[in-house]
Design a protein around this nucleic acid. Sequence first.
DNA 1: CCCCCCCC
Length: 442
Amino acid sequence: MAMVPSAFFPIADLSNYTKGWTIRVRVTSKSGLRTFQSKNNEGGKVFSVELLDCEGGEIKASLFNNAVDNFGEMLQVGKCFTFSRGTLKVANRNYSTLSHRYELTFDRDAAVTEANHDSIIDTMKLHICDLRSVQAKILPANVDLCGVVVSFKAPHAFTSKDGKDLVKREIVLADDSCSSMEVTLWSDRAQKEDKEFEGNPVMVIKSVIVKEWGNGRKGSLLETGALLISPSIPEATKVRQWWSQGGSSQTLTALSDGAFVGGKAPVGKSACLSDIRVASEQATFSEEVFSVVCRLAIVQTKKQGEEQPLYYMACMELKDGNKLPCNRRVDSSGFCAVAPRFNLRCKFSDCEDSTWLTTFHEAAKGALSMEAFELKDLEQNREAMEAAIRHSYFQQPWIRAKPDHYNGESRTNVACVDARPVLLREHGRFLLKEISDMIVAS
DNA sequence: CCCCCCCC
């Protein structure tokens, strides 16, 4: 007779108002055992697991002391169990990779029973995020990725600052968003044989923590995450097809090597948008560059109902004696080498003001985290094109450097000349200093 | 009641 799923409580509905629940779940990850000294100086031990049920609900559970003794061995990744008699508390966002508002703790009262393999519970729940959207995430971010291994380094053993022996291996993943990012694998995963990484296999990596490193972004696969090599899931098939049907020869936007930070940006006077507004309204204003921390709020895609061009086709021939392309506007049958270049009107916002700025190619690439050809590729589908742009709204603070110059008349031309992700650590220190200066001043 | 997600 078929099992009645409703006999078990849905994980998604667990809260601290729930009484007398029993859940039936699969263990999808398991941490190592940690020992600790609690506040009243008692020694304790704990490990945690992630649990998935047949409705796709996920929750983190921590098992303490007696529960470790009773169930520590039994709970293994991939196996199914029923759990009851645990305590619910609001999840600590700092330590949970799952979206559930609550998490479970189990101690001496816990009831855990091994269940038969339950095929209606998935073995893993993935929330795969393409690499281009990783560029726009608030950091640190926890993501699941599906990409082609485009390169890998040898495993490297070293001792960490606090004396731990570690082995890491860096790989570079790329996906059909034409982006790539370096990801660090650790210990056993790092020490898989080289041949596992050869021949551009598709890998799914679950629970990658993404952080700012240097000028770019880098991932690190957490202990409780997962590494799947050439899995048969639709996302893997899609990425594999992209790679074999031209992706392998495409230019990739690297998140890890400062691709968005390349080139010489003018470093402007630190300002906010209202400072720029004031400066640009002054008649005596001479050319000046400002740097502002702000967000991209909107791109003007329509004007009085009319769709606006977002890029133009430019000549890419190199000028004589110059390494720069001439960038002359050409028609679509242009006889020189042509490439799309952005020309956008963007509204940028900070905490107190917002302003529309003409945003040319280099700056627009930074503001949108995308290449002009990626937008042009969608030219048959205006809605998809605009959706791709909307994706970047408010996603990431940008430093905007801006020169002001004249166009012969007294009218001041204000433009965005460069946009790049804010280095959060540096910016955080800057803000802290501002606060402490204010305290001193008061 | 734990809790770092390691490194350049």
